[in-house]
Design a binder for these strands. Sequence first.
DNA 1: CTGTTAGCGCCTTCAC
DNA 2: GTGAAGGCGCTAACAG
Lengths: 332, 332
Amino acid sequence: MAQIKDVAKRAEVSVASVSRVLAGHTGVTEATRQRVLEAIEALDYRPDLAARRLRSRRTDTIGLIVSDIRNPFFTEVSRAVEDMAYQNRMRVILCNTDEDPDKEGFYLDLMRDENVSGVILSPTLPALARFRMSDYSFPVVLVDRCDRETTADAVVLDNADSAYRLITYLIKQGYRRIAFIHGAASATGRQRHEGYVTAMATHGLETQAQAVPATVEAARAAASELIRESSLPDALVGSNGLILLGLVKALREANLQFPEHLGLAGFDDLPWTQLVGPGITVMAQPTYDIGQATIELLLQRIAHPSQPVRRVVLRGELRERGSSVRQKGSAN
Amino acid sequence: MAQIKDVAKRAEVSVASVSRVLAGHTGVTEATRQRVLEAIEALDYRPDLAARRLRSRRTDTIGLIVSDIRNPFFTEVSRAVEDMAYQNRMRVILCNTDEDPDKEGFYLDLMRDENVSGVILSPTLPALARFRMSDYSFPVVLVDRCDRETTADAVVLDNADSAYRLITYLIKQGYRRIAFIHGAASATGRQRHEGYVTAMATHGLETQAQAVPATVEAARAAASELIRESSLPDALVGSNGLILLGLVKALREANLQFPEHLGLAGFDDLPWTQLVGPGITVMAQPTYDIGQATIELLLQRIAHPSQPVRRVVLRGELRERGSSVRQKGSAN
DNA sequence: CTGTTAGCGCCTTCAC
DNA sequence: GTGAAGGCGCTAACAG
C-alpha cells in the first residue's frame, strides 16, 4: 500500500506538496501538481482514511438509527439518505434499535466514538422525551418522530392532522364505529391516535382504540380479538403499514371482506395496498421526500452548527380506494 | 474529551497500563485494573476510534453492497447482517449500486480506503464475471449472486433448481403455456431462467421468456404487453418479488383474475403474496437465514483468511396457494 | 507487572 | 511555492 511519502519521493517533492494537491489547495505550481498527480496515478495511491481522520478530526460519516430497517417506511428513508450521502461523499452506518432504548443508547454512544459528522435518529419514546441537542457531541436530526416540545431539527409527517383527515373522511363516508389500532412504542402512533380521538370527538362519536407493538403479528392478534367480539366495528384503521398488514391478515383469517363486512383504512401507501381486495384507502406519506429532507437538514446543520432549529412537516395525502366505500343497507 | 493519558494520570499509572486494561489483557494487577477502571468511569473516557484504527490497522467495519436496499430481499438480508454485526461489535456501512458497475466500483474502492474488515457484496453481472478474490485487499463474501465458475465464499439460493421445481409444479397442475418474466441484470434472474428452460424442455414445452430490468414498473410494462397479445399464456411466473408485483399490477389493470383467467406464481414469499386474490404461489427464500449465513461466512473468513472457499446453497421452499390452481374447462 | 517510547499515515503550521 | 517537523490519540514492543 503506497503512502504519501512514496508519492512524494516519486514526484520528487515533499509530502506537504502532495498533501496540498490532494486537498485541492492553490499555492502549488501547475508543474508540481502534474508531477504529483502522475505519481499518485502510477502508485495507485489512495490516502489512508484512518490517518486522515485522526489528523483532521472529521469522518464524513453519518449514522442512521432507526427501529427496524424492515419497516418499509425506514427502508425508503434509508435509501434517500444513502443517495444523498453518496452525492456528498459521505458514508452511512446503519443501526436498528428494535425500539429498545438500551440498544439505542449503545448506538448513540457508538456514534460518539465514531466521531460521526452527524446522526439521523428515529428516537424511541423515552429517548424522545428526554432529548436535548446539547447532550450530543454531534448534530442530530430527528426523523418520523418528534414531540411538540422537542427542540431539535426534525422532519415529520403532520401525524395528528393526517389521522384527523383520514378519520373525518371515513365518518363522511358514513362510518360511525371506527376502531383504531396504533403503535404503542412511538410518538408517531400516539400522535395519529390523537388525531383519531379529535376527529371522533368532533363528531360526537365514541372511540375504540388499541395500542399495540408496531408489528404485523401484534396487530393481527389485536384485530382478531376485536373481531371476535359480539359487535363488529364499522371500520378498522391501522396507524401504519405494518399494522395495516396485520389487520388485513386478521380479516382474511376471519373471512371478513372489506368493504362488505367492514371498512378498512390505514397509513402508508405500500405497493400491495392497491392490490388486495378492492384496494385499501390509505394516508400516503411522501417517504422518500422525508428521507431526503432529513439528510438535507443534517448536511446544513453540519455546515452551520449554530443555525436556528428547523422542523419540516410534510403533509400526508389521502388515497381513496375501495376498502372504504360504505355499503348500503349496513347497520349503523 | 478525555484521552488515554488523562486516564493514566488520574489512575497514576502509565498509558500502557490503561491500554492493557482496555484491551482486556492479562498481566495487570487487579488493583491497578480497578484504579484504571475508576478513572475511565470518572472521566467518562472513550477511546478514539480513529487513533485506534490508525494504530491497529483494523476497523471492525463491514461494507454491505447491494443493488437496492428497497428490494425486500436485501432489506431482510441487511437486517440479518446488522444483527450479527451488532453482536460482534462491528458496524455496517450500507451501499446501493442500482446495478451500476461504476457505482459498484466506487463503493468497492471506498471499502479499500475505509480499510474495512470485510465486505458482503451482491455483485452486478459484469463484476461477477470478472470477480477474483485476489483483486481485493479485504475478504469478500458474495450473496444472492454467484456463478458456477466463481471462486469465492458465497451464499445463494439453489436458483436453477428452485425455478425448475416451481415450473414443474405448475406443469403438473396442468399448465402448459407458461411465460417467465425474469430480471435481466443479475445472475439470479439468469439462473432461474435456466431452471425454467430446463423444466419446460423436460416436458417438451415451448418457452416464452422475457428479460426485464428487475423493477416493478418494467415487469408491469412487459406483462401488459404480453397480455395484450392475441393468445394469453396459461400462466405467468415472475423471477422475484419485485417482478411478481409488476405482474399482479398488470393483471389487475387488464382486469384479469387469477387463477380464473391464468395461473400466477413467482419467487419471494413477501407478506402481501398471501393476501392478494386467492394468495399467490411462490418459491420462498429463507431470506434472513441467507443474510445470517453470509455474515457468518464473512466473520469466519476474517478470522481465518486462508481457509478453503465455501459456498452455502440454501433451498427454496414451494408455497402452494390459490393462484396456481388450474381451472377446469380452461383451454389447453 | 509496569513504564517509556516509537511510530501508525496524514495535515499543517512555520520557516525559508 | 516549497520543505521540515510536530503532533492527532493510541498500541505494542522493549526495558526494567
